[in-house]
């Protein structure tokens, strides 16, 4: 390989993706359980338990039930979790403990293809999780179709965004314990303050502004709009933000992994 930062990507990243799919298919029955049960747990805990206290809430000028408010957010959170945890903990194990990337780099694959394959695989896991959760949630009638189907491509976009930043962290952490930092400082605040469990308007102005920097805020807004069937032009800004986020962190992830692995 040559020196310096030069990107070498071809469709071969699909080979890496295929490897992960093969492993996933060995245990798909177990992998399917969390996205199936998770929305049920949340809907029961927050929806049934909490909505007795909350009742209906006002969202964008209309009264909606608390359960229908959080249901699309749960899909957004799951999109974030699936790709982020795949390209952090799972990729780190493959890279560091299993030497899987080393083996791949002795074949015609380039490092960029290996990393792209991993990120796209993370997005695939987001897609699978979103699809299963949509099935469960639409059983309760909280998703309008056909607009709700837009959540599927949204899962891929969100998966790429969070998978890229996850891989960026994998490129810079010294050891696997250090993932606690981005999880605690980045993922957890987003989980709580991205308009997931209460409308952002309930927060002070400065906090609302800060929340617009969170990619999850936009992911949840989009997921909610698609679920409610409220398609309007302003959603393009939200999509644009997720695209921009991906366009920044995808090359950064490649760069950091190259600095880490190519010696």
């Amino acid at each position: 390989m040559t020196q310096g930062f030069r990107i070498k990507i071809s469709r071969r990243f699909l080979r890496v993706w295929g490897r992960n799919l093969k492993v996933y298919r060995k245990s798909w029955k177990i992998s399917f359980i969390p996205p199936f049960l998770e929305p049920l747990f949340y809907l029961i805990a927050f929806g049934v338990g909490l909505s007795a206290l909350v009742g209906n809430i006002r969202y964008q000028g209309s009264d909606i039930s608390y359960m229908s408010f959080i249901a699309p957010a749960l899909i957004g959170v799951s999109i974030m979790y699936n790709s982020f945890f795949e390209t952090t903990y799972a990729s780190f194990v493959r890279m560091y403990y299993q030497k899987t990337f080393d083996a791949m780099l002795a074949t015609p694959l380039s490092l960029e293809e290996v990393i792209t394959g991993e990120i796209v695989w993370g997005a695939t896991k987001s897609f699978i999780a979103a699809a299963i959760m949509m099935g469960v949630i639409s059983f309760f009638g909280f998703i309008r179709f056909p607009e709700g189907l837009l959540i599927l491509p949204l899962a891929v976009l969100g998966g790429i965004a969070f998978g890229s930043i996850g891989m960026f962290f994998t490129g810079i952490v010294a050891n696997i314990e250090m993932f606690n930092l981005p999880v605690f400082l980045f993922i957890t605040p987003m989980f709580l303050f991205s308009g997931t469990f209460f409308p952002l308007e309930n927060l002070p102005q400065w906090a609302q502004k800060a929340a617009t920097l969170f990619p999850l805020t936009h992911l949840v807004n989009l997921s909610r709009a698609f679920s409610f069937g409220q398609i309007h032009i302003s959603l393009l800004w939200e999509i644009g933000y997720l695209l921009l986020f991906s366009l920044i962190f995808f090359p950064l992830a490649l760069l950091k992994m190259q600095q880490r692995l190519i010696k």
Binding site: R19, K22, K26, K99, T100, A103, T107, P108
Partner: peptide, 30 residues
């Protein structure tokens, strides 16, 4: 690299896969 075979020093077999799958998946990289 299409025409080189490499035995690296550290064990880099794929522990998530079986013996046969290790060979088959690797063949796909080529």
């Amino acid at each position: 690299k299409f025409h080189i075979g490499v035995c690296q020093q550290e064990n880099s077999l794929d522990p998530d896969l079986t013996v046969l799958q290790n060979l088959e998946i690797f063949a796909r990289y080529f």
